[in-house]
Write a protein that binds this DNA or RNA. Structure first.
Length: 281
DNA sequence: GCCCAGGGATGCG
DNA sequence: CGCATCCATGGG
């Protein structure tokens, strides 16, 4: 896998550790569209146009450095997969999602997005976020930027309800009013425990959402978000029937340690994708 | 019409 | 603490 950074594009040749569809479809990002062998991906006010075939991926963007880091291109995933493949629970999931990379997204956008994600389905989450961008974000010409914190501070509870946030509208309003740019900057450089504590203090953020924010927005890899799918996975693998997510989180984090975040994504994608495809997507 | 979705807040014992 | 209940709403 050879990566070349140009002035307005990133070229990846023989991309054996990077599958664009898997990376976009494993539930870590909500702002993208796919059209055949191409995709558009958005983060804050930035955009990348991606094209691929079997032996090449081309990422076209004005923000090369941003998307290089966004797709975690400095990291060697073959080593991660080698370690995780030895785990009897994980081997097939790693093989199935072998092109997944964990995205380094904007912390603030991830906080807002994952508050919306609670007890919600991915299609509806995407619709709500798109609504927020269309109504409150900057018009970039071909697309709308994710609304800045200053822009969201002007949005009322009623307007959040119109974005289909349901009962999360009030939580969102509280958190947006409380958050400052400084909070978010401090959060990035804080200790893991401090990050977790702060995130839990936000309305609409519980243990699972806090772990997602750390994994996808703060670059913390040794966390294991447990949602309904991971709950099912755990019960499947251990032949149990629990809904105690705290216990599941503790056991799986202890099992996968520094690789917890990666393990979680392989599990999530493998189980959810197979379940969904049985129904039809 | 019922169940589910990348759960969280609240109240009660 | 742990546990039960409620919460909006579109999709399947």
């Amino acid at each position: 896998m050879k990566i070349t950074k140009g002035i307005d594009k990133i070229i990846i040749e023989q991309p054996k550790d990077f599958d664009v569809l898997q990376t976009l479809n494993c539930g870590q990002i909500f702002r993208f569209s796919i059209d055949g062998n191409s995709a558009k991906v958005y983060s804050m006010d930035k955009c990348a146009n991606i094209y691929w075939d079997s032996d090449k991926i081309e990422i076209n963007t004005d923000s090369v450095d941003y998307f290089y880091n966004f797709f975690d291109l400095d990291r060697d995933y073959s080593q991660i997969k080698k370690v995780l493949s030895k785990d009897k629970f994980l081997s097939s999931a790693v093989e199935y999602g072998s092109g997944i990379r964990i995205i380094n997204n904007d912390a603030y956008e991830i906080i807002i997005s994952f508050i919306i994600s609670a007890n919600n389905n991915i299609k509806r989450i995407k619709n709500s976020i798109e609504y927020l961008c269309r109504h409150f974000g900057k018009n970039m010409g071909n697309y709308f930027a994710f609304p800045t914190l200053a822009e969201l501070k002007k949005v009322s509870i009623k307007q959040f309800q119109e974005a289909n946030l349901g009962y999360r509208a009030e939580q969102m309003y509280c958190t947006v009013q409380r958050l400052t740019e400084q909070d978010i900057e401090k959060l990035k450089s804080a200790e893991k425990d401090e990050q977790y504590k702060f995130l839990l203090s936000l309305k609409g953020v519980g243990e699972k959402v806090a772990n997602c924010i750390m994994l996808f927005g703060l670059g913390v890899k040794d966390v294991f978000p447990v949602d309904t799918w991971i709950n099912k996975v755990y019960n499947d693998l251990t032949n149990s029937n629990t809904t105690d997510r705290k216990k599941i989180t503790q056991e799986l984090t202890a099992r996968y340690k520094d690789y917890s975040g990666y393990a979680q994504q392989y599990f999530f994608y493998y189980y959810r994708d197979n379940k969904i495809s049985k129904i039809s997507r």
